[in-house]
């Protein structure tokens, strides 16, 4: 059964379809059902973090922890070698009668370099992997979307999803007790 307005749509390509919910429970349940129905290219928006929502939309594991580890490792090795080069090669200086490469005295700086590079990788990596900075995003074309930072919850299914069909997906989103389903224009 097709609704009237579905048949009257224009043929412009859209970014996706966005459903609005009143409660966090609503959006979490909807995300789970969408995931069960086979949708993968989706995202959800909430005024506050909802742990279950991340799982419900089937968010993929991020590569960020691995990058941070590698950043820390580079800081650790780099920090140590930097000191060894300075103290033993570039400007050899005997301190307290100890060998030029004295590991215990290198540990604090090595540790600090590890933390510095790991933390920097975390911040920069998060920004880059999130695709930021991003001056324009289609979701803001939905007028009511600004409520996502106040008291509404949104579920977005992107048109790039292999299972996406403008009519069927719209009917599906409506069947999930959503308040409203809107087209997200490019």
């Amino acid at each position: 059964m097709m609704n009237e307005d579905l048949l009257q749509r224009d043929d412009r390509p859209i970014y996706g379809l966005m459903a609005e919910f009143d409660t966090p429970t609503g959006v979490v349940n909807a995300a789970r059902q969408a995931h069960d129905a086979g949708y993968r290219q989706m995202d959800a928006f909430s005024p506050f973090p909802i742990h279950e929502l991340t799982e419900a939309v089937g968010a993929k594991k991020t590569r960020l922890p691995l990058l941070i580890f590698l950043g820390g490792l580079a800081g650790c090795i780099g920090g140590f070698l930097m000191q060894a080069y300075m103290m033993a090669v570039d400007y050899p200086l005997i301190i307290g009668g100890r060998p030029l490469v004295s590991i215990p005295s290198y540990i604090p700086v090595t540790f600090e370099c590890t933390v510095l590079l790991a933390a920097t990788t975390a911040v920069v990596g998060m920004i880059v992997l999130n695709g930021l900075p991003r001056p324009y995003h289609p979701v803001f074309n939905v007028p009511r979307f600004e409520l996502a930072s106040r008291n509404r919850f949104f579920l977005l299914i992107e048109s790039t999803d292999p299972k996406f069909d403008r009519d069927e997906t719209k009917l599906f989103l409506r069947s999930l007790n959503s308040r409203e389903v809107s087209d997200v224009d490019y």
Binding site: T23, P24, T25, F48, P49, I50, H51, E52
Partner: peptide, 8 residues
């Protein structure tokens, strides 16, 4: 947030 799982 607690609303999510009040049902169980």
């Amino acid at each position: 947030m607690s609303e999510v799982h009040t049902h169980d």
